[in-house]
């Protein structure tokens, strides 16, 4: 089974801020979730017109453009998948995040679907490289990986 690379928002932004997003992902396919796309593309685009400071507007615009371009080239992909098989894991992930953060589960904004995506591929027998600089998310992924004896390698961007 081939390795599957999954990146959450933090990894994409970390690479981008180092000017290494396109070069690091060259020749690779990285899977993200619809939620990550919303965080990195849809939401910034929505607020863009309200940002008064041109410098800030330009930086956000550049970030969004690069991600859109990588999606268009097929480097970053949003898999169309049936999340039903991992719905229980995602619910549990949300509960675990809520517990870590000390808030009620309905208040959690963290992307629990990316955890579902990693588990989905890992349960199919893939080795999953999970790129993330978010310690809270990483701890939940590592918990599931250990519990289900899955091959998920959590990697942070230095």
């Amino acid at each position: 089974m081939p390795e599957v690379i999954i990146a959450n928002s933090s990894a994409i932004i970390a690479l981008q801020r180092r000017g290494q997003l396109a070069t690091s992902l060259k020749g690779k396919t990285v899977f993200i979730t619809r939620r990550i796309y919303e965080e990195l593309v849809d939401k910034p685009l929505k607020v863009l017109s309200r940002i008064k400071l041109p410098e800030l507007r330009d930086k956000i615009k550049r970030s969004v453009s690069e991600i859109i371009s990588l999606i268009e080239r097929g480097t970053i992909r949003i898999p169309e998948m049936d999340f039903r098989s991992v719905s229980k894991v995602m619910d549990e992930a949300r509960l675990r995040i809520a517990k870590i953060e000390g808030i009620s589960p309905d208040k959690v904004k963290a992307d629990h679907t990316v955890i579902g995506l990693a588990i989905y591929f890992a349960r199919k027998g893939h080795t999953v490289i999970f790129l993330s600089n978010d310690k809270a998310i990483n701890s939940v992924v590592e918990y599931f990986s250990k519990r289900e004896k899955l091959k998920i390698k959590v990697r942070t961007i230095p």
Partner: peptide, 9 residues
């Protein structure tokens, strides 16, 4: 930093 809050939140 301590992993008690996700960046999303």
């Amino acid at each position: 930093k301590e992993g008690k809050l996700s960046i999303y939140d």
